[in-house]
Design a protein around this nucleic acid. Structure first.
Length: 283
DNA sequence: GCCACTGTTAGCAT
DNA sequence: CATGCTAACAGTGG
């Protein structure tokens, strides 16, 4: 479910409604959600939420200088507001209640891949989870991008999914980015072949920005914390469209499995270019 | 019922 | 170190 645009959207929806609220309690229904000591959750009682941030696909709820709740939503995690007294369903893993507020905030996660870690540090971005991932794709500069690209081999599709390369791109946006950049998902990441590094970076920026503006992609069950669907699925050009005509050239979209992940692309618009011959002849 | 598939990534093998 | 599969879980659809 949640890649960078979805987590960004969720963070914004949470921020609007939670900053300034005081936590009255945190109930953990699935102990496996929490990485670390369960006793830590008790320390959040009485703390005020001061900010909500996204880093890569991770979400950080901050309560003052030294207390942060770090969530990873993985495949099916998400937030939902619940009325007082409403019974939780089988997939509710955690509940946060607030002082002077009827509604409580639920964390739901069908597949139980998601996790929560309490960070007690003034610099959460330096924590193990948040510091090992790569740069933000919307913030990296031209020079830095070509620099990190130059160090990589392997196929562009797998590289885009590698969170230590760039943080936040997942399977949907990787395919849409490669389509926008008109490069084949199996293209080697070698910078010699990819003089189009800047075109790739531009595609990353374009797709992620549009997806954020659309509130993310709701394919199966993604919604933000206010229950709003995203709209970017209506702008998908290739993802999930095997056999359909390419919106650009009409060729049939193909599906390959690359690194164990479904990869959709247009065989005509996204050719593997050899270095010498076809630079600049992208149609 | 069985099998393939799903928006992620940690862990292990090569 | 880099890159490539697979399992972890639960559901859906053919």
């Amino acid at each position: 479910m949640p890649e960078l645009p979805e987590v960004e959207t969720i963070a914004a929806s949470l921020r609007r409604r939670t900053v300034g609220l005081e936590i009255a309690g945190i109930d953990l229904y699935f102990p496996g959600l929490l990485r670390g000591d369960a006793a830590e959750l008790a320390k959040y009682r009485g703390k005020k939420i001061t900010g909500v941030l996204r880093r890569g696909k991770m979400l950080l709820i901050t309560c003052g200088a030294n207390h942060h709740l770090l969530f990873h939503l993985k495949m099916t995690g998400g937030f939902q507001w619940a009325k007082k007294g409403a019974r939780r369903d089988a997939y509710t893993r955690l509940r946060i209640t607030f002082k002077d507020l009827e509604r409580s905030l639920l964390f739901r996660d069908v597949r139980k891949f998601g996790f929560l870690r309490c960070l007690e540090t003034g610099v959460p971005l330096d924590s193990a989870e948040l510091s090992r991932i790569g740069p933000e794709p919307l913030e990296i500069t031209k020079d830095d991008f070509s620099r990190i690209l130059a160090r990589r081999k392997g196929r562009l599709k797998s590289l885009l999914l590698d969170q230590t390369f760039l943080a936040g791109i997942g399977n949907i946006y990787a395919d849409e980015i490669l389509f926008a950049a008109r490069v084949h998902p199996l293209t080697p990441a070698s910078p010699l072949r990819l003089k189009q590094a800047e075109r790739l970076r531009a595609a990353i920026r374009e797709i992620l920005r549009k997806a954020i503006a659309a509130g993310g992609s709701s394919i199966r069950d993604y919604q933000d914390a206010d229950g709003m669907d995203g709209l970017f699925q209506n702008e998908h050009n290739v993802y999930g469209r095997k056999g359909e005509p390419c919106p650009r050239c009409g060729a049939k979209i193909r599906r390959l499995v690359i690194g164990g992940r479904s990869s959709f692309f247009c065989p005509r618009c996204q050719r593997i270019r050899s270095r010498r011959s076809s630079e600049g002849t992208s149609q």
